[in-house]
Amino acid sequence: MSDVVTLERVTRSYGSVTALDDVSLGFPRGRFVAVMGPSGSGKSTLLQCAAALDTPTSGTVRIGGVTVSGLNETRRTEVRRKHVGFVFQSYNLLPSITVEENLTLPLRLAGVRPDRAWLSELVERVGLGGRLRRRPAELSGGQQQRAALVRALAARPDVVFADEPTGALDLRSAAEVLGLLRELVDELGQTVIMVTHDPAAAARAHETLVMADGRVVDLLSAPAPEELAVRLTRLNGVLT
């Protein structure tokens, strides 16, 4: 199976701080991968570099077969629009436009006509039917995050990056969103890479990468939440 996103010897430093230290990785298609690690372990930097939001100091990043590390801001944006979907902790829905307009905003920016059938399928799947004409502020947090999920998938991206997608949600909404993410992977063959610090969230993934000090220190396959919690506590202990 080919990798959707590959990192080759990627290093990212901010001044004297090395947030990502010579990481080489491949994310296979159709998998749900969680990235965990203590604060400052480099998991957010890994996501930003892998998603072409940030440019590595050295090394190569390929998304959907396109090498993005050498591209300028505008070109990278165009690659992201085509190949990458995002789900953020703070939803990032524009408050001034309707939910429906939010869903198609990235397509609009890309100048692509939305696939109506695909969109309504997604909307039905996440259970947002009938709420499309509302403003985001009129939706609950869980509903907003589900809308963000539809938005991320609207362009049929190669990969969806999720940055703490359940961080702002209550337990039930969080469970719903995680269930949806897993469903996307299992039923639609999507690829999802999710950064989280919640072992319960990571437990819904196929694999969990554990990071510390800018390196991948462990790769666990379908770990139990308890096992993960222990791993993380030990890492934290090492750090402190």
């Binding site: 505008t74 992201r80 920016l109 890309a110």
Partner: peptide, 15 residues
Amino acid sequence: EELLALRRLGATPGQ
């Protein structure tokens, strides 16, 4: 913040 959000959603700086 609002402009950055647009950027993250796929708007180029030029847009």
